[in-house]
Design a protein around this nucleic acid. Structure first.
Length: 567
DNA sequence: ACGGGCCGCGCG
DNA sequence: AAAGCGCGCGGCCCGT
């Protein structure tokens, strides 16, 4: 059963209607006062557990979460449209032409959970007169109908159905994780900053330890007015000191032996901590010992999530020591082992590669180690570099040189990524296992391909190869994202069912998701059960995507009090 | 003053 | 040892 939720006839109302799976009405259209939304949704959820249909989860769910209401499942029209518009599986369904424009994201809906109070008072003028257009009930019903039709008449209805329901579940998880936040000990973070940088500056100057390093650097390079934050400035000073680096990247600078290098690299590291994850970051993103990271489902073309504000998916190892579980809780940190290579083996149906990731009994083992044993003299890091190089399209360097060996060992898998690259170089589309397709090349890409002069020709080839590397990686990265999304969605479902039925106090809560890793904040007494669920969900995800295949997608789960102790 | 592009580096 | 995918972020730099 569906529950459609849309803007109401008057500004302070919403409309709600229950519909059957075939689209027929199962209830009257109800107009609900805005302030009664949460109570109404809560009641309908309890009695019907419908699939909530809304223009986008971000317009509705944060408000419900703040009111203490959670829902089991939804259909996010915006996310689903984003997939269906481009999917080759649905290319001949007429959906692309039929799709209506989903109302844009409203800023107020997104800010939701909390804002910087200083910023709020300075810049926010609460203005209810300016409102983005919202969909009424008929628009929601119409778009749902179009999307259902597109799925049903597509070339792979079951796959698209799975993709869209996993993506929609992702929208719920993302909103819940943002609302919940990662446990984050502000005083530990401050202590770390104090130890590494010195006291927080009260003016615009650098922290003491940073300024100290800058002075050392200026002395070592004999450049009194050097601004170490300026690459150009720095490059000139390095050259004057006889350091002939072509860039100021840290790995390149490490090659030179000069008294300036060490303070420079230390400056860089600390400067990054100060500017990106320092006191300002704490003030902006941490409230009441929770880091309220914001996730953007489907924010990457491949279907991976992105993050917005606070760098939820780029938390440096350096500061993970501040993420400590509440008392009576631990983190279960689980990551999928060698996810992308395993996805490649499954997509290409390369049984030799699958065998490298399994033992004689068919159970999983370290895939890189298996490949290393089969052809890289047991050197795991070499095997890893080679395989990642093959998936990314490396042509030179250490990684590129190792690829030919892989071609001999796993011709099917390597042929698979080669085909993906060649299709992309011609301007063609690629599609993930469940049906997310690459966007077509931009017009100026096609323009560049119709070149005449020799110089234009070279540029065209560079552009073609670049798109080839993108499409080569797209299918693997995108299908890995689908596996991870199914894993996450199934884990959420299990956690909810478990929390409902468990007599134990407390609730296990998903608090982070990083491409192939999930973090659950879990009451101590539930750790064993939840750890088992993390593994069960991984098997469900594998089965949902690939059915019965001779390859496992194992998960490594560690139980830690502090996030820094994982791995 | 603002913003788009680039750099360098954090994460996967 | 150091090029090959996808992102976000903050600072610099330069055009407007």
């Amino acid at each position: 059963m569906y529950a459609l939720l849309a803007a109401g006839p008057a500004p302070s109302t919403v409309t709600l209607q229950l519909r059957n799976a075939d689209g027929s009405a199962a209830s009257e259209v109800r107009a609900v006062a805005r302030q009664d939304l949460a109570a109404t949704v809560s009641g309908v959820e309890a009695s019907h557990q419908p699939r909530w249909v809304w223009d986008r989860a971000g317009h509705w769910y944060p408000e419900l979460l703040r009111a203490g209401v959670r829902v089991e499942k939804c259909h996010d029209l915006s996310l689903c449209q984003n997939i269906l518009r481009h999917s080759e599986y649905a290319a001949r369904t007429g959906y692309r032409a039929a799709a209506a424009e989903v109302p844009p994201e409203r800023e107020s809906a997104r800010a939701g959970t909390f804002k910087d109070p200083a910023q709020e008072s300075l810049f926010e003028t609460p203005d209810t007169s300016v409102k983005a257009p919202q969909w009424g009930l008929e628009a929601v019903a119409q778009e749902l109908r179009e999307q259902r039709n597109a799925i049903a008449s597509s070339t792979h209805p079951a796959r698209l159905e799975l993709l869209l329901s996993a993506e929609s579940a992702g929208a719920l998880v993302a909103a819940e994780m943002h609302y919940e936040g990662i446990p984050w000990r502000e005083e530990l973070h401050r202590k770390l900053l104090d130890d590494l940088l010195g006291p927080e500056p009260t003016d615009l100057s650098r922290p003491a330890k940073l300024e100290e390093l800058a002075e050392q650097l200026r002395a070592a390079l004999n450049a009194q007015s050097l601004n170490p934050d300026s690459s150009q400035d720095l490059m000139r000073a390095l050259h004057r000191a006889g350091i002939e680096a072509k860039s100021t990247r840290s790995w390149e600078l490490q090659q030179f032996h000069h008294p300036a290098i060490e303070p420079l690299l230390r400056y860089r590291k600390l400067s990054r901590l100060y500017t990106t994850n320092g006191w300002n970051w704490l003030r902006q993103w941490v409230r009441e010992d929770r880091f309220h990271s914001e996730y953007v489902v489907g924010g990457v073309v491949s279907g991976r999530w992105a993050s917005r504000g606070g760098g939820a998916m780029q938390i440096p190892a350096q500061i993970r020591g501040a993420a400590v579980a509440d008392s009576g809780h631990t983190f279960i940190v689980a990551d999928a082992a060698q996810l992308e290579p395993r996805v490649l083996a499954a997509l290409a149906q390369d049984s030799a590669m699958a065998a490298a990731g399994s033992d004689a009994a068919g159970h999983s083992k370290d895939l890189y180690a298996g490949i290393a044993a089969q052809g890289f003299g047991g050197d795991r890091s070499l095997a890893k570099m080679a395989l990642l190089g093959a998936i990314y399209g490396a042509t030179s360097g250490d990684s590129g040189r190792l690829v030919p060996q892989l071609v001999r060992m796993y011709p099917r898998a390597l042929e698979f990524v080669e085909q993906a690259a060649r299709t992309g170089e011609r301007g063609g589309s690629l599609t993930t296992h469940l049906g997310r397709s690459t966007p077509p090349p931009a017009q100026d890409w096609w323009d560049s391909q119709r070149s005449s002069t020799a110089q234009e020709q070279r540029r065209a080839e560079t552009a073609a190869r670049s798109r080839g590397r993108f499409t080569r990686n797209f299918v693997v990265q995108g299908t890995a994202a689908e596996w991870a999304c199914c894993w996450l969605a199934d884990l959420r479902r299990r956690l909810r069912a478990y929390a409902r039925s468990s007599p134990l106090p407390g609730t296990p809560q998903l608090v982070a998701f990083l491409h192939d890793e999930v973090v659950v904040h879990c009451p101590d007494a539930m750790v064993a059960d939840v750890t088992a669920m993390v593994h069960e969900s991984s098997r469900t995800a594998t089965w949902l995507l690939f059915g019965a295949i001779p390859l496992e997608f194992p998960v490594n789960a560690t139980v830690v009090r502090c996030y820094a102790d994982a791995k």
